[in-house]
Simulated assay, not measured.
Amino acid sequence: MFNDTAKIARIFEYLLAVKNLNEKIIRNINHYEQVWWEKDIPQMDGFYIGGSGTNEDAWFEVHKQEIPTVPPVPSELKKWVTKHDNPEQPPTVLEVLVVGIDDEENEIVEVFDEDQLLNAFALLQ
């Protein structure tokens, strides 16, 4: 079994070496598609440069972050707010809500009241 594994590993090493024969060697840093300098990398939680993380020998480290859950929408506002799956996208607040249709087939609408919003958030605190 070990002998077969070694043979398979050598085959892949050979294939990689053949592939690399066609690769262009970049000898000047300015010829790379993109260059990241340490000063250009934003300082963020969980991202460490130059051994400042848990491993002193690491050039850089990235640690998974704990992202807090979004607070629930107050029940008074649920019909006015559309939440999105994307945490980067803020919720959409409807300004007008269609609540029904009258006898003449006109929409019956309810307009968002900002006082209702302020009262709902005051209850959260």
Rank of each mutant, 00 (worst) to 15 (best):
F112P: 00
N28W: 04
V109Q: 14
P87V: 00
E23Y: 15
D113E: 10
E104L: 11
V93Q: 10
K83Q: 12
M1H: 10
A120L: 05
L123Y: 03
N86M: 02
N20E: 14
N20D: 15
P91H: 02
V35P: 03
N28K: 13
P68I: 07
D45M: 04
E105C: 12
E66G: 00
A17N: 05
F112Q: 01
F121G: 07
P91W: 06
E95G: 04
E66F: 15
D85S: 14
H31E: 15
H63P: 03
V99P: 15
E56A: 14
V111S: 03
R27W: 05
E110N: 12
V111R: 07
F121H: 11
N30P: 04
E88S: 12
V62D: 00
I11E: 12
E114L: 13
G53T: 02
E13I: 00
V35D: 03
A58P: 05
Q125P: 12
R27C: 05
H31G: 03
V109A: 11
P90D: 02
F2C: 01
Q65S: 11
T5Q: 11
N3T: 09
D102W: 03
R27F: 11
D4N: 07
E105P: 01
E104G: 00
I11W: 11
D57F: 07
E107C: 09
N55W: 05
G46C: 02
K19F: 09
R10A: 14
F121V: 11
L15C: 08
N20C: 06
I49Y: 06
Q89A: 15
A6Q: 10
T54W: 02
K24C: 14
P87E: 00
G46H: 05
L124M: 13
N86P: 00
Q89M: 12
H63A: 02
F60E: 04
D102Y: 09
P91I: 01
E61V: 09
G100L: 03
E114N: 09
W37T: 03
H63W: 14
E13T: 00
V73C: 09
K64D: 01
H84A: 02
D103P: 00
K83E: 15
F47R: 10
E110C: 07
L123P: 10
N3S: 14
E61H: 09
Q43V: 12
I67R: 15
Q34F: 11
V99H: 05
L117N: 03
V62I: 13
P68L: 05
Q65N: 14
I41Y: 10
T92V: 06
T5Y: 10
L97D: 01
D57Q: 09
W37V: 06
I25K: 11
A122R: 13
L118A: 07
P68D: 10
P72V: 05
S52L: 07
I25R: 12
S75F: 07
F60H: 10
D4Y: 07
L124R: 15
Q116R: 08
K83G: 07
S75M: 01
E66H: 12
H63D: 05
T5D: 13
H63F: 10
H84D: 00
D85M: 03
A9E: 08
L16N: 13
